[in-house]
Design a protein around this nucleic acid. Structure first.
Length: 216
DNA sequence: GCGACAG
DNA sequence: ATCTTGTCGC
Protein backbone atom coordinates (compact mmCIF):
# COMPACT_ATOMS: atom_id res chain seq x y z
CA UNK A 1 0.00 0.00 0.00
CA UNK A 2 2.88 2.38 0.69
CA UNK A 3 5.71 0.94 -1.40
CA UNK A 4 6.61 4.34 -2.82
CA UNK A 5 7.00 5.89 0.63
CA UNK A 6 9.10 2.96 1.79
CA UNK A 7 11.55 3.34 -1.08
CA UNK A 8 11.72 7.09 -0.51
CA UNK A 9 12.67 6.41 3.11
CA UNK A 10 15.36 3.96 2.04
CA UNK A 11 16.73 6.55 -0.36
CA UNK A 12 16.74 9.42 2.18
CA UNK A 13 18.19 7.19 4.92
CA UNK A 14 21.43 7.05 2.92
CA UNK A 15 21.79 10.80 3.41
CA UNK A 16 21.60 10.68 7.20
CA UNK A 17 24.86 11.71 8.87
CA UNK A 18 25.65 10.51 12.39
CA UNK A 19 28.55 12.43 13.95
CA UNK A 20 29.35 14.21 17.22
CA UNK A 21 27.66 17.58 17.68
CA UNK A 22 30.30 20.00 18.93
CA UNK A 23 29.00 23.51 18.28
CA UNK A 24 27.67 25.90 20.87
CA UNK A 25 23.93 25.95 21.18
CA UNK A 26 22.64 29.50 21.35
CA UNK A 27 19.14 28.73 20.16
CA UNK A 28 17.36 25.40 20.48
CA UNK A 29 14.19 24.43 18.65
CA UNK A 30 11.32 22.18 19.70
CA UNK A 31 8.41 20.99 17.53
CA UNK A 32 5.19 19.14 18.12
CA UNK A 33 1.94 18.53 16.29
CA UNK A 34 -1.48 17.93 17.84
CA UNK A 35 -4.52 16.72 15.92
CA UNK A 36 -8.26 17.19 16.14
CA UNK A 37 -10.27 14.29 17.46
CA UNK A 38 -12.26 13.33 14.37
CA UNK A 39 -10.27 14.87 11.53
CA UNK A 40 -6.82 14.94 10.04
CA UNK A 41 -6.35 18.61 10.81
CA UNK A 42 -3.08 19.13 12.61
CA UNK A 43 -1.74 22.05 14.63
CA UNK A 44 2.00 22.49 14.69
CA UNK A 45 3.99 24.71 17.02
CA UNK A 46 7.67 25.28 16.39
CA UNK A 47 9.33 27.01 19.33
CA UNK A 48 12.79 28.51 19.66
CA UNK A 49 14.35 28.85 23.13
CA UNK A 50 17.59 30.45 24.25
CA UNK A 51 19.97 28.72 26.66
CA UNK A 52 18.07 30.15 29.61
CA UNK A 53 14.93 28.32 28.43
CA UNK A 54 13.27 31.60 27.48
CA UNK A 55 10.97 31.63 24.45
CA UNK A 56 12.56 33.58 21.62
CA UNK A 57 9.99 32.81 18.94
CA UNK A 58 6.96 30.64 18.17
CA UNK A 59 5.45 29.87 14.77
CA UNK A 60 2.18 27.98 14.29
CA UNK A 61 0.84 26.14 11.26
CA UNK A 62 -2.59 24.59 10.80
CA UNK A 63 -3.01 22.09 7.99
CA UNK A 64 -5.31 19.22 7.04
CA UNK A 65 -3.41 16.22 5.76
CA UNK A 66 -4.46 13.05 3.94
CA UNK A 67 -1.86 10.69 5.32
CA UNK A 68 -3.15 8.70 8.33
CA UNK A 69 -0.92 7.62 11.19
CA UNK A 70 0.89 4.48 10.14
CA UNK A 71 3.67 3.11 12.38
CA UNK A 72 6.95 3.73 10.56
CA UNK A 73 5.46 6.38 8.27
CA UNK A 74 4.78 9.14 10.80
CA UNK A 75 6.94 11.69 8.99
CA UNK A 76 4.65 11.72 5.94
CA UNK A 77 1.82 12.83 8.20
CA UNK A 78 3.63 15.45 10.28
CA UNK A 79 6.50 16.74 8.16
CA UNK A 80 4.35 19.03 5.94
CA UNK A 81 3.30 21.04 9.00
CA UNK A 82 6.73 21.05 10.64
CA UNK A 83 8.45 22.09 7.42
CA UNK A 84 6.15 25.08 6.92
CA UNK A 85 6.50 26.18 10.52
CA UNK A 86 10.29 26.02 10.30
CA UNK A 87 10.28 28.15 7.16
CA UNK A 88 8.33 30.86 8.98
CA UNK A 89 10.93 31.20 11.74
CA UNK A 90 13.02 34.37 11.80
CA UNK A 91 15.47 32.88 14.29
CA UNK A 92 16.75 29.53 13.06
CA UNK A 93 17.75 27.20 15.92
CA UNK A 94 21.19 25.54 16.04
CA UNK A 95 19.58 22.20 16.79
CA UNK A 96 16.02 20.85 16.99
CA UNK A 97 14.30 18.41 19.35
CA UNK A 98 11.50 16.42 17.82
CA UNK A 99 8.90 14.23 19.54
CA UNK A 100 9.77 11.06 17.60
CA UNK A 101 12.49 8.59 16.65
CA UNK A 102 15.56 9.40 14.58
CA UNK A 103 17.55 6.44 13.22
CA UNK A 104 15.80 4.06 15.64
CA UNK A 105 13.47 3.13 12.82
CA UNK A 106 12.81 0.14 10.56
CA UNK A 107 14.46 1.85 7.59
CA UNK A 108 16.68 4.22 9.56
CA UNK A 109 14.52 7.27 8.85
CA UNK A 110 12.24 8.22 11.71
CA UNK A 111 10.62 11.67 11.68
CA UNK A 112 13.64 13.29 13.38
CA UNK A 113 15.98 11.94 10.69
CA UNK A 114 13.62 12.82 7.85
CA UNK A 115 13.31 16.36 9.18
CA UNK A 116 17.07 16.68 9.61
CA UNK A 117 17.85 15.50 6.08
CA UNK A 118 15.20 17.68 4.45
CA UNK A 119 16.30 20.84 6.28
CA UNK A 120 19.96 19.82 6.58
CA UNK A 121 20.08 20.70 10.28
CA UNK A 122 20.92 18.78 13.48
CA UNK A 123 17.85 17.05 14.94
CA UNK A 124 17.43 14.80 17.99
CA UNK A 125 14.50 12.43 18.36
CA UNK A 126 13.00 12.40 21.88
CA UNK A 127 10.15 9.88 22.12
CA UNK A 128 8.12 8.73 25.10
CA UNK A 129 7.95 5.17 23.83
CA UNK A 130 9.77 2.69 21.66
CA UNK A 131 9.22 1.99 17.98
CA UNK A 132 11.89 -0.65 17.31
CA UNK A 133 14.83 -2.21 19.11
CA UNK A 134 15.66 -4.04 22.30
CA UNK A 135 17.02 -2.66 25.55
CA UNK A 136 17.65 -3.25 29.23
CA UNK A 137 15.88 -1.05 31.73
CA UNK A 138 18.24 1.66 33.03
CA UNK A 139 18.60 2.66 36.71
CA UNK A 140 16.03 5.13 37.99
CA UNK A 141 18.25 8.17 38.49
CA UNK A 142 18.42 11.10 36.10
CA UNK A 143 21.29 10.56 33.68
CA UNK A 144 21.17 6.75 33.81
CA UNK A 145 20.80 5.12 30.42
CA UNK A 146 21.14 1.93 28.39
CA UNK A 147 21.50 1.54 24.66
CA UNK A 148 18.67 0.79 22.29
CA UNK A 149 19.89 -1.94 19.96
CA UNK A 150 18.35 -2.84 16.63
CA UNK A 151 19.67 -5.44 14.18
CA UNK A 152 22.94 -5.58 16.10
CA UNK A 153 23.52 -1.84 16.07
CA UNK A 154 23.09 0.82 18.74
CA UNK A 155 20.48 3.19 17.35
CA UNK A 156 19.72 5.26 20.41
CA UNK A 157 19.55 5.47 24.19
CA UNK A 158 16.92 4.70 26.79
CA UNK A 159 17.50 7.65 29.07
CA UNK A 160 16.16 8.59 32.50
CA UNK A 161 15.53 12.33 32.33
CA UNK A 162 13.92 12.57 35.77
CA UNK A 163 14.37 10.51 38.95
CA UNK A 164 11.93 7.61 39.28
CA UNK A 165 10.24 8.31 35.97
CA UNK A 166 9.88 6.11 32.91
CA UNK A 167 12.70 6.68 30.40
CA UNK A 168 12.74 8.72 27.21
CA UNK A 169 13.83 7.06 23.96
CA UNK A 170 16.54 9.22 22.50
CA UNK A 171 17.86 8.62 19.01
CA UNK A 172 19.94 10.85 16.77
CA UNK A 173 18.10 12.24 13.77
CA UNK A 174 20.82 13.91 11.71
CA UNK A 175 24.20 15.64 12.21
CA UNK A 176 24.53 14.35 15.77
CA UNK A 177 25.45 11.02 17.39
CA UNK A 178 24.06 9.01 20.30
CA UNK A 179 26.49 10.32 22.89
CA UNK A 180 26.06 14.00 22.11
CA UNK A 181 22.29 13.49 21.80
CA UNK A 182 22.22 12.23 25.39
CA UNK A 183 24.33 15.15 26.64
CA UNK A 184 22.22 17.68 24.76
CA UNK A 185 18.93 16.25 25.99
CA UNK A 186 20.12 16.30 29.61
CA UNK A 187 21.34 19.85 29.15
CA UNK A 188 17.88 20.98 28.11
CA UNK A 189 15.92 18.96 30.62
CA UNK A 190 15.36 20.77 33.89
CA UNK A 191 12.40 20.14 36.11
CA UNK A 192 10.30 17.74 34.07
CA UNK A 193 10.71 14.40 32.35
CA UNK A 194 10.13 15.84 28.90
CA UNK A 195 12.98 18.03 27.57
CA UNK A 196 11.99 21.69 27.67
CA UNK A 197 11.90 22.37 23.89
CA UNK A 198 9.43 19.58 23.08
CA UNK A 199 7.54 20.10 26.33
CA UNK A 200 6.87 23.74 25.48
CA UNK A 201 6.04 22.88 21.86
CA UNK A 202 3.56 20.26 23.06
CA UNK A 203 1.80 22.73 25.36
CA UNK A 204 1.69 25.43 22.68
CA UNK A 205 0.37 23.15 19.91
CA UNK A 206 -2.44 22.05 22.22
CA UNK A 207 -3.43 25.60 23.11
CA UNK A 208 -3.19 26.52 19.42
CA UNK A 209 -5.67 23.76 18.56
CA UNK A 210 -8.07 24.57 21.39
CA UNK A 211 -8.05 28.28 20.68
CA UNK A 212 -8.66 27.59 17.01
CA UNK A 213 -11.76 25.51 17.78
CA UNK A 214 -13.30 28.63 19.32
CA UNK A 215 -13.38 30.30 15.90
CA UNK A 216 -16.67 28.96 14.55
C1' DG B 1 -1.04 -16.55 11.18
C1' DC B 2 0.01 -13.65 15.56
C1' DG B 3 1.63 -9.76 18.01
C1' DA B 4 3.99 -5.17 18.05
C1' DC B 5 3.63 -0.74 16.51
C1' DA B 6 6.92 6.98 17.31
C1' DG B 7 2.42 10.26 17.04
C1' DA C 1 -2.47 11.55 18.65
C1' DT C 2 -7.25 12.08 21.55
C1' DC C 3 -10.85 11.41 25.63
C1' DT C 4 -10.60 12.09 30.89
C1' DT C 5 -10.93 11.97 37.22
C1' DG C 6 -9.13 10.44 40.54
C1' DT C 7 -5.34 8.53 42.71
C1' DC C 8 -0.87 6.70 44.10
C1' DG C 9 4.13 7.79 44.92
C1' DC C 10 8.23 10.66 45.40
Amino acid sequence: MYEHLLSLQNKLAKKVIICPYKNNIRLIGGVDVSFERFSNTGFCSFVVLNKKFEIVEVKNVKLTVKMPYVPGLLSFRELPLIYQAYKKLSFKPDIVFCDSQGIAHSRGLGLASHLGVVLNIPVVGCAKSRLVGEYNIPGNKKGNYTYLKYRGENVGAVLITKDNCKPMFISPGHLIDIKTSILTVLKFTKKYKIPEPTRVAHILSNSFRREDSNFY
